[in-house]
Design a protein around this nucleic acid. Sequence first.
DNA 1: GTTAGGG
DNA 2: CCCTAAC
Length: 622
Amino acid sequence: MEAIVDAEVNEGKNDVESEVEGDGTLVPATEDDVMQFEHLLEDEKSEPPSVEGLAQSKNTELESTKLDTRLEYASVTLEKVKQEEKLQSSSESLDLSANPPGDQTSDCANNAQEQKNELQSENALMETTPISTILNGSHSGEMEKENMETCAEPANEAVTSISSVSKTCISSMPDFSLIKGEVCLDKFTIRELQEAFRATFGRQTSVKDKLWLKRRIAMGLTNSCDVPSSHFVIKDNQIVHEEAKEETPCSVSRSKVEAGSPSGDQGTEPTKDGCQDSAASSYDHIKDLELSGKRLSRPTDEYDETKENLGMEEYSVKRMRKPTRRYIEELSDFETQECVARVPIFRKNSGHVLASPKPWIRSVRESGAQSTTYSTRQDSIGGFNVRVPYVSRVRRGRPRKNFMTLMQSFHPSGMASNFVKPPLEIFLRQNVESRNKIRKARSLPMRIPQLSIVDKKRDTENAQKPDSEEESCMDTFKFDTAEENTNDNADARPALKGGPKRKHHRAWTLCEVLKLVEGVAKFGAGRWSEIRRLAFASYSYRTSVDLKDKWRNLLRASLSQVPNEKEDKFSRKHTSIPIPTPILLRVRELAEMHSQTGIEIKPSKFSGHSGKIVQGSGSGFL
DNA sequence: GTTAGGG
DNA sequence: CCCTAAC
């Protein structure tokens, strides 16, 4: 047994690694569910050989069963759309094939039991548990604990756990999990179950109800967290929670899922977990763990409904998940929503979740993984770009999600409304106008995260871009040159944004300012449309409102600054472009001239600088 | 559609 | 820059 186990373990590890590689390569490329499935399938395919070898050495029966299952899977694999079908069929095949070999599994179980009888320790239990579907859960649970304390080697941990699982379960991990989940538990005595319970929940139980214990244990193992009320709040990022909730109920579902990916299951899952952990480790290990556990179970949440309900109530007591801020908030949100319509929503959600959430999680995970490994692929993973928002790129829908998830991952603490802001600030420029953000938040509470992010991105873009093109003209005081540039940009920008989004921020160039001033001098302040038409003919992107605003700003600047006059030519640091004092002076002068009916304000003073203007305005004025 | 103001 | 009210 041991020898075999070792061999298997090794094998398992190898498999895992190979899978990991496959996973790694595939994952980045595949963002869609389909892709995901495919890749899983591929993994399975690739894996079989190793497993087979093991199986052969060990049990021919198992081998055959596995092969069958694999074949089945392979046949089924291509049908993306029929994922569920695939799962079911696979599970069925597994059941059929597995039942005969069941002896093997049963053997395992027996062995485990024997060992248990002797040892009875929690550890022993844990090891034995792997046989059932619980195993995964248990491992995850362990993982969780470990991770909690030591975040160091998530991936490794996952692998090891997997290996251990394979060890106990031997060749056909997935199989028994599917088939035996219940069986194994059944075999346990009440006492054993109680032990298991203790191991799982860390507390004794006097309950002698086998069913209850089983259920409880299964639940506990499968779900690290227990959510009293299972609802899905589909927050932008938060699908996870949903999953977790759903997950809780289903030992069965889980088994099915596993069945779905028999050979590959081990490897793939663990690897995934590892990835997640690594990614997630940055913030919330627990959550990640949960997620990982859930992923598996999720696909078939529907079946468990009955169980769910029972389980939920019962096992809400057990292991409480640390109340993360985010978690709490979500929960609260849930509750509120829940009140409206619980059951119906639940159903809906379950279905909903099935479809969408998975991808999501995956995406998240991917993003995490990539963040570490594939820094280069920023584009594909919108989230990651946050740091490096280059951007002339058009944003696509996808990135957003990732981005959000990513954001969450980084800032687990900041939730709901808060969570949006902090990340943005952290990752992006601070000098962006806070106003906009706030305002948007106000208007679009639900969408806040996305919008704000988008805006941010844009802002970042804006900030960077201007420098390269227009600014140069400004800085160098080549006023004339600026004109040409602007036109191009102007057109491009709006188009990209497409929507009613914020106009691309264009810093006012000196030339523009000059033109504006001239225009005002010529036509007078307030005739913005005219000024725009005549003086800004070349600057299509400047609207009359823009002119007005700019003028206002100029005025303000001039008023505040003029007094000091000669201080520094480019005094305004905060301003995008330093406005030369002379211009400010001119502005002020113009303002004065227009504003008052006839009061002269020391026109003589300025004659030197803006004599021309003064004259003009003066003449007009007079 | 413009302008003026506030945000 | 955005938004809105008032022209």
